[in-house]
Design a binder for these strands. Structure first.
Lengths: 123, 123
DNA sequence: CCCATAAATTGACATCCATCGATGCGTTGG
DNA sequence: CCAACGCATCGATGGATGTCAATTTATGGG
């Protein structure tokens, strides 16, 4: 969604050519620093055992939505910790939060994981 | 910490969760704790701007291999830092190292990124 | 031999991060 | 109106992590 793989910078930076020292030159453009940082931020959100299990637990639920009370016990973590991880996943655009009454229901953002996986495979 | 998170049982189908309290029950099994930790370790290796750019730079090279001397300057990081990141990527099975003479050439492990992406998308 | 180069290792340091207990806020039910 | 419940936030803390300067190791050339 927000990741533009194409480099927005037309290159005021002279991409060298002078060295040609030990290796072959680049055949295509690599990822830009800004895109790398953005992609890394998204990957960091998923690169945690607890958060991976949270995503999996939410995806495994029958109607693909789950409340915190259902996620705390199978993880073996305290309720504040689970809330923290869920907030990270929501901020990263992986999950959505929907508070109905006393409970907060989380569900997967459709295509979010696939988008991440696609960007990773297309490096 | 009243109980250990990782059961000694093999990883395939460890838990049968009793039915939940407030929400719908799980329709399929979620990822196990051991698998989550292993996947998280691989994802952590890639969840860093510098390492993402390293992977991209290596992949972008003409013969898909690059030495440290070619990677230090475009990253804007010191040589020890680049060496450190490359070691992380090699340890994670993303890159391979091949020292020829004075130079060390790094290249992508075929299918490593796709495998990671597949595991991520299949959560 | 000795020096120059390439890369890895070490040690130190600052920052980030996962985790918890305690607390606050909003909702539900009696 | 008040107690109970679900969840978020706060503050603290121990451990992991990214970064660099200095040093070490290994290779090659004069």
């Amino acid at each position: 969604m927000s990741f533009t793989v194409a480099p927005p910078a037309p290159d005021s930076t002279p991409v060298d050519t002078d060295t040609a020292a030990c290796c072959a030159p680049a055949s295509r453009e690599a990822i830009g620093a800004a895109d790398a940082e953005k992609l890394a931020r998204s990957l960091k959100a998923v690169a945690d055992p607890a958060r991976l299990r949270l995503v999996s637990l939410v995806a495994a639920h029958a109607d693909e939505e789950a409340c915190v009370c259902d996620l705390t016990e199978p993880l073996g973590l305290s309720q504040p910790t689970v809330s923290h991880h869920l907030k990270v996943l929501v901020d990263a655009g992986i999950l959505t939060r929907d508070k109905r009454g006393t409970w907060a229901y989380y569900r997967l953002v459709p295509g979010a994981l696939d988008s991440l996986a696609g960007l990773l495979a297309g490096l």
